[in-house]
Structure formats: structure tokens, C-alpha cells
Write a protein that binds this DNA or RNA. Sequence first.
DNA 1: GACCTACCGTAGAGATGTCTACGGAGAATG
DNA 2: CATTCTCCGTAGACATCTCTACGGTAGGTC
Lengths: 189, 189
Amino acid sequence: MEAEPRTIEKREKASREDWLLATLDVLRERGIEGVKVVAIARRLGLTSGSFYWHFRNLKDLLDSVLLFWEDALTGHIIEDAIQFEGPPEERIRHLMHQVIREDASRPDGAIAVWAKSDADAAQCYKRAMKRRFEFSAWLFEERGFAPLDAEIRGRMMVMTLMGETTNNLHLQKDWPDVIDRHWRVLVDK
Amino acid sequence: MEAEPRTIEKREKASREDWLLATLDVLRERGIEGVKVVAIARRLGLTSGSFYWHFRNLKDLLDSVLLFWEDALTGHIIEDAIQFEGPPEERIRHLMHQVIREDASRPDGAIAVWAKSDADAAQCYKRAMKRRFEFSAWLFEERGFAPLDAEIRGRMMVMTLMGETTNNLHLQKDWPDVIDRHWRVLVDK
DNA sequence: GACCTACCGTAGAGATGTCTACGGAGAATG
DNA sequence: CATTCTCCGTAGACATCTCTACGGTAGGTC
């Protein structure tokens, strides 16, 4: 059931980023209430004493996690899609494949639940979703759909990808085929 | 941030089901690791001592929650759609609206996260999703799509609805319009 | 060799949580 | 009125968690 622990090799010292990445793993697997200092330390093969060298307290870490998720994990996909050269429908296809390929490290589901009971997480989640929706709408406008139609198709794409992510589609060997079939329904006029 | 607590009126005694429903609320808002005996008791205005009259222990409660979610909350929507009389595309529309209407009490997102670290939850989640996908595929076959196309459209419908659920679409006043636009993309040939 | 920086471990206070043991209250039953 | 059935509260043992205080160590610097 458990994923491969993100241990550090050869008794190396851990950086602030090591703690952050390990936290993302715990967050994805156990949810926000499962993010405990001792749990992350155990995963890194360290003790909680060392944690407080890198972070002021647990809240400090959680704030960093939110920022990292919004900037790196959401922004990364969008920038990658902007870089892509080719026809609009292929750009969409590229993005969809990219999301599933990087599936394993996405804590999106856990953050959505987190947002239900925490104001900071809710605000961050809302901002990130808005950004995803707006970018996706643009993708479908480029493809030639009218604004309102492009908006709903973009929205469906985001939701479908998040759904397949929480559903662990990437563990299924025929996932590229499944994604292509989703893609066809979305881009066909 | 917090939802209205599901308190019991006038110092009434709580039934096993009261505890179960309160647990669903906590599960939805805080995730599985937030489901603590004392937290649920607090929400009901009781103490943990009373909990152990209704349940052997925390695991006993969690098992019941999984069964209830799978049988009642998933089965309910399907049975309602089967009852529906009218053309296939309207049956699909009815189901989509129904899901969002009952949105507030759905802990689907929390259960998806739970399934990442617990074998029992994972099995239950898989079964429920299989049932949803198969029923949805049938809906779109009735609508006249070929099996493979019906399957992917059903899958997209389920994911979109779960996405809009975690996204709290039901709090948006124009949600029926948004759902109808999703619907058009899915059922149009 | 002395020093400094960066990182880690241990010990412990205080909070929170699970679960058991047991006693008590109110409604229903005889 | 006495008894029983249901449900609830309290107290306490034990575990886990956050966070502080402080001491230790390895590698680079002067």
C-alpha cells in the first residue's frame, strides 16, 4: 500500500527541500491531517529535532507546501504547454499526457480536501484552479471553439485529468490510449 | 470555513446512525486522519465514552462508513437514474443534476485520498468506481454511442462530476447552467 | 589546531487522542 | 415502586504529537 519512501542516501544531511518533497509524499498518501513532523522525519530517517532547524514550526512547512504546489506543480505544466510547438489540438494532447505522466507526485486530491477546512489552503486552491481553467479555456479557443464552448471544454479537461489522477490511471499500462480517447471527445468539433 | 455542525437537538440521545452521519461530515472536511473519536463526539455535543457504546472501536466505525458510502451514497444515485422515465439523454442530464444537488454530503474526495494508504478503503473505492463507470457506459450506450465511445464518455462524466463536487460547484448559483453545458458536450453526436 | 557553520539526536513538558472501567440518569416495563 | 434497557459522563492508563532546550558531530575556514 505504501509508496517507496523518499529516503536520503548514505546518511546525507537533508535540505529544506528534502523535507518539503517528503511532505508532499505524506500529504498525497495520508492527507493534511496525516502530515505530522514525526511522520515526515521517520520517512527521511531523521528525528523531529532536525525538523526545527529548517522550519519554524509545522505551519511554516505547510505554507511552503502550498506555495510550492501552486507555483511549481501547477505552473510547470502550463509553461511546458506554452513551450510546445505544433497545432492547437496537439498542444492539448501534449498537456494531457504530461499531466498523467507526472501523476505520481501530484497531491491535488489531498489539497482539495485540505481546502475544505483551512482558509489559506482554500485561497491557494481557488487561485490555482482559476489559473488552470483560464489557461485551458485559452487552449480550446486556439483550437477554434467559441469562448463559452472553449471554457466548458477546458473545465472538463481539467476535471477529467484530476479525476484520472486520483484514480491512479498512470498505473494502468494502456493509459496513453485512454487519454487519447478523452482527448478525441474534447477536441472534436 | 467550518460547515454547520450536525448537532442533535434538545439533549436527545444519539443513535449509531447519528454517529455515522457526523463522521461523514468530519471525513469530508478533515480527511480520514481527521476522523477522531473526540472530534466526532465534540460535533455531536457528547463525549467519547458514549462512542464506545455504539462502536467497538474506531476501526469498527470506519468499516461502517465505507459500507454506507458504497451502498447508500453511490447506489442511491444509480437507482434514482434507473427509475427515471424519459429519453436517454434526459436520463443522463437528470443524473448529473442529481449528483450536484446532493453535493454537500459527498465525502468522495476524502475517500479517494484515504484509498491511497488503506487497503480496505482502496478495495471499496475501486468497487464503487467500477460500478459508476459501468453504469455510466450503459447510459451512453442507450444514448446511441458505440461501446468504446460510450465507455469514455461515461468515464468523463463521472470524473467531471467528481471534479465539480470537490470544486464545490453547488455553491455557485449558476450551477445548473454549467452542468447543462457539460452535458451538451457529452451527449452531442 | 581552534573555530564556525550546518545539521542532527535526546530529553522532556504539555497537548491531544484511544480505549477501558465504572457509575449514573431517564424512559420503558413489570 | 422496582427493575431493566439505553445511553452518557468521568477518570485514568497509555500512546502519539508539537515544540523547546541543549549538547554533539562532521566538514570547511583561518
